[in-house]
Design a protein around this nucleic acid. Structure first.
Lengths: 407, 407
DNA sequence: TAAACTTAATAAATTATTTTAATATCTTTC
DNA sequence: GAAAGATATTAAAATAATTTATTAAGTTTA
């Protein structure tokens, strides 16, 4: 692993971040990781222990000498509020520094589309949840929010939903809750989670496909989330893919999303069953969208031919789009994530088929396609990571005082 | 501009690189650029002067105080061998540290396709050129080579041409010439040139389109050339773009290259004229490919309707491909470069037309499309940059000795 | 036109970092 | 199972970097 250059003044917060991501490390390991001498790492670690952020967690196995003492973040030193939104509903959680929820994750209905009060509703839910869990705001490091739409994480603006009258959502929510807030596109948040805690851990070149009601793309480039110049990179689902495809909500024809998203699969399923196709789905055909979506994966697992046909068709189309992505990005790994990751196993074969057809063999040869193990939790974990990514020395100092004041 | 963290042991070579890119800088500017204190920059600069790499170049205008003393690289301290290859011919140059050729640039015929002796021929040409110019090898920093094909710059291997029996081209050419050698894909080399010395100077998110016999893509991501995991990123011209397009040399159908490359434009021109289309191109229809290509741009500039129609058609198709690229990468700038950049002006309108049709408006809105001013020199300059990108403290020390030995 | 204000370069003092050496603890090998 | 080799931690010495203060040189403004 290449060493990460950090300024001396940022060393302590960078060590804390590293421990958050890596769980447990020894001083010697941190020394090589940061390219700093042992004494200076030692000093930083001891200060972090005194400040209540880090604890010793026993000895690691020896590799031929004295056993190294491992250090880890103190899980309950601080908490992180992690929020995962989609067009229909929003999940709210507070997790500790080991990403474990400290209270039940709450799911609330919150329609984003054409909803002028969505933002204020969200803030209500946030404040209510904090109150309910009884956790002091001073112990919460910040709020991370993954949300659909054209989101500029740098500016904190979502150009599609949650209008804060041109103001930054980060600032708006901060002033309404008192907590530092960071928003980002849902797919980029899921990519963060997969690269820090998921199947793509520590990998440098990863494309994470967010299979949901739409089809999103979170990109990891050179080991970091890539968002492009305006923050809109990874707008994968609306590239012109099929010459005479279905009409898309974006107004264009032939978008991937209009051909292969979970929404389309559900609708095709309904359509097919109405026209007499046999399927065990028949019993849930009048259920709301969300339940129908869940049912599809259950039924697929039991081998329902019609559903498998639908998922295969979607998979092949996703594969064609992936072929384009691979040509441009040449990633090492592609991760199928999001709520639709459950169907990943079934889609794998048609995706590979499409890659064989549309990819230059040399490019497709070494591609590794993985299915997320974080699944539905990915966006929550990613939202927490988002807060830690923005953690710096300044915040370390602020929160040190809070811990010592024993709030 | 954000500061660049460097290890103390690499400071001098990093300063030298910076001066190479920026032409002239004061100590105070370097101090903020590297986030180091003035005394330490001062010390490094004075050492570089003593070693013969840097010279004072007069005072910069004052911004309200004492006028800063500017420093620049000593242009003739060292030389760089820069080589630009395409499938048919190869240009060889030796440039000084201001990228000025110190002898006439030589163009030699060198077919890459199915040519087992191409590599050894290249080495012959290299050695002969050095001999001819009379420059001591010890004064040449290294050889940078831009070449078509699937090139892994990291491994120094071209999987398409110039087979060195699995060995690294970098090493093979080094052992045959005694000069450190760095190869890279031609389009990525052109992108380097555009970002360091061209219209995309210092920009962070740039897509450089290499319009040539094929259509290449060099990507600048986060201010650096992006090559992907295996080094094959930017394989732009073979994405599945047109459902029933022309057959491509890659074996697939509907590739951009098979529809819009200069090769295709030339062939369509010949075809059209044979079928009776009127054009001032008529007189050169039996000329070799290269001359015909040059003629196309000359004739286009005079307003030949048939040629403009052909270029517009190609432009529209390139625009459709750019739409895909923009959706995925969200760049700030797109640069039309390579030998076909001369036709950029004419292609601009149809490209914009295609973007309007195929791009989500928000993404296309702020895109800046520029035409290269480096033109045909781009690849040569980029090849020189490639050598400087690989310049480090170790090489600085080696070459300091050489300069002091007065070779 | 001189005083006040900026900016740049240099020197000395202070602070921070790394090396080196010493010690503690564990694994391997004879 | 003791001695040799390896790794981790701690302490002291040596080195390096930054801050601060000072001098120099130029601009702006009253």
């Amino acid at each position: 692993m290449k060493i990460k250059l950090v300024k001396a003044s940022e060393l302590k917060s960078e060590i804390l971040k590293k421990l958050y991501y890596e769980n447990a490390l020894s001083c010697a390991e941190l020394s090589v990781l940061f390219g700093k001498s042992l004494p200076i790492i030692m000093k930083a670690i001891n200060e972090l222990i005194d400040e209540g952020f880090v604890v010793e967690v026993g000895y690691a196995p020896s590799s031929g000498g004295r056993r190294p003492l491992n250090y880890a973040v103190k899980a309950d030193a601080m908490y992180i509020m992690a929020i995962a939104m989609d067009q229909l509903s929003t999940r709210i959680a507070i997790v500790d520094l080991c990403n474990r929820p400290v209270a039940e994750v709450e799911m609330v209905e919150l329609l984003l589309n054409n909803n002028a009060v969505a933002l204020d509703k969200l803030i209500e839910y946030i404040n209510a949840y904090i109150l309910k869990t009884g956790i002091a705001k001073e112990r919460i490091l910040g709020i991370g929010i993954g949300m659909p739409g054209f989101v500029s994480a740098a500016d904190g603006i979502n150009y599609s939903y949650l209008d804060a009258h041109g103001q930054s959502l980060n600032e708006y929510i901060f002033s309404a809750t008192g907590l530092p807030t960071y928003v980002a596109n849902d797919s980029s948040v899921i990519a963060l989670a997969e690269q820090k805690f998921g199947v793509a851990k520590a990998q440098e070149e990863v494309m994470v496909i967010n299979l949901g009601w739409g089809i999103g793309l979170g990109m990891i480039v050179k080991g970091e989330v890539f968002r492009g110049y305006d923050g809109f990179a990874g707008e994968f689902s609306h590239i012109p893919l099929f010459e005479d495809g279905a009409l898309c909500i974006c107004g264009k024809q032939g978008c991937l999303e209009a051909e292969a998203s979970m929404l389309v699969v559900v609708e095709k399923a309904k359509e097919g069953i109405k026209q007499g196709r046999l399927s065990t789905l028949q019993s849930v055909i009048d259920d709301p969208l969300k339940l129908m979506g869940d049912a599809i994966f259950e039924v697929a697992a039991t081998g329902d031919p019609f559903v498998i046909e639908l998922l295969s068709d979607a998979g092949y189309k996703i594969g064609k789009a992936l072929a384009i992505l691979i040509h441009i990005m040449n990633p090492k790994t592609i991760v199928l994530s999001g709520r639709g990751a459950k169907g990943g196993k079934i889609m794998m074969a048609p995706i590979q088929l499409a890659l064989n057809k549309y990819c230059i063999p040399r490019l497709a040869a070494n591609i590794e396609i993985l299915i997320s193990e974080l699944g539905f939790d990915g966006e929550i974990i990613g939202a927490a990571v988002l807060v830690m990514e923005n953690f710096d020395q300044e915040k370390l100092i602020i929160n040190t005082k809070r811990i010592q004041m024993n709030i």
